[in-house]
Structures are given as structure tokens and as C-alpha cells.
């Protein structure tokens, strides 16, 4: 299958990345060559194969549901590009 420019713009929208119009052509070319490479997998019949969902031979551990951390609001807010005293600040979302 091949990816056209419209499809790529749609995927970019899903990924929340604005794509420079001037770069769409080269991006389309690169992605199509990558997908051509990826689609070698279609040579293989995998109808009877179970998908591998974890590489470990163990299931995820469970732990007690208790608080082990906290009172670090300052640390969490420290790297925020925009904040007031207690909150992250984003552009207005509700009129």
C-alpha cells in the first residue's frame, strides 16, 4: 500500500505534529520507502502464530496499594514552561 500526502497529513494530525508544507513531499517519499521495506513481512504466513506480547517469562508484579511518595508538588511543577502557584497553565480551552 502506498501513503499519499493527504494520508500523511491525517496521521500527523493524529500524532499532534504540525507538518511543514514544504517538507511533505520528502516525508512522503521517505515513509513510502520505509513501508515498502516493512511490508516484506507479508511474505510470511503467520495465521497460526500467537503474537508475542511480553518478552519476559514472568507476569507483572502486583504491589500493595499504598502511598509511597508524595508532597513533591514543587518538584513536579519545577520544569513546567508555564504555571501558577499550584497548577500547570495551558491555553484557554473553555470559552
Amino acid at each position: 500500500m502506498s501513503l499519499d500526502k493527504e494520508k500523511i497529513k491525517h496521521v500527523a494530525k493524529l500524532a499532534r505534529i504540525s507538518v511543514d508544507e514544504a517538507k511533505v513531499d520528502s516525508l512522503t517519499k521517505d515513509l513510502n520507502s520505509i513501508f515498502k521495506f516493512i511490508e516484506q513481512l507479508n511474505e510470511l504466513n503467520t495465521d497460526k502464530v500467537e503474537p508475542l506480547t511480553s518478552i519476559l517469562n514472568q507476569s507483572l508484579r502486583s504491589r500493595k496499594d499504598e502511598i509511597s511518595d508524595g508532597k513533591i508538588r514543587e518538584k513536579i511543577l519545577k520544569n513546567s514552561p508555564k504555571k501558577n502557584e499550584e497548577f500547570f497553565v495551558v491555553p484557554k480551552v473553555v470559552e
Binding site: 499532534r16 520544569n79 513546567s80 514552561p81
Partner: peptide, 24 residues
């Protein structure tokens, strides 16, 4: 996403555009 840490774009008229420009 430019909200909690890292670069945030100064461009864009709403939240979605802020995300898109930040990541771009």
C-alpha cells in the same frame, strides 16, 4: 506536550495548535 516540562511553542491560537507547534 509542552505542558508539564520541556519546550513549549509560543505559536498557536488554542491548546491543540500549541501541542502541534510544540512537537513540530
Amino acid at each position: 506536550d509542552g505542558v508539564r516540562y520541556g519546550h513549549r511553542s509560543q505559536k498557536g491560537k488554542d491548546l491543540i495548535e500549541m501541542y502541534e507547534n510544540t512537537r513540530s
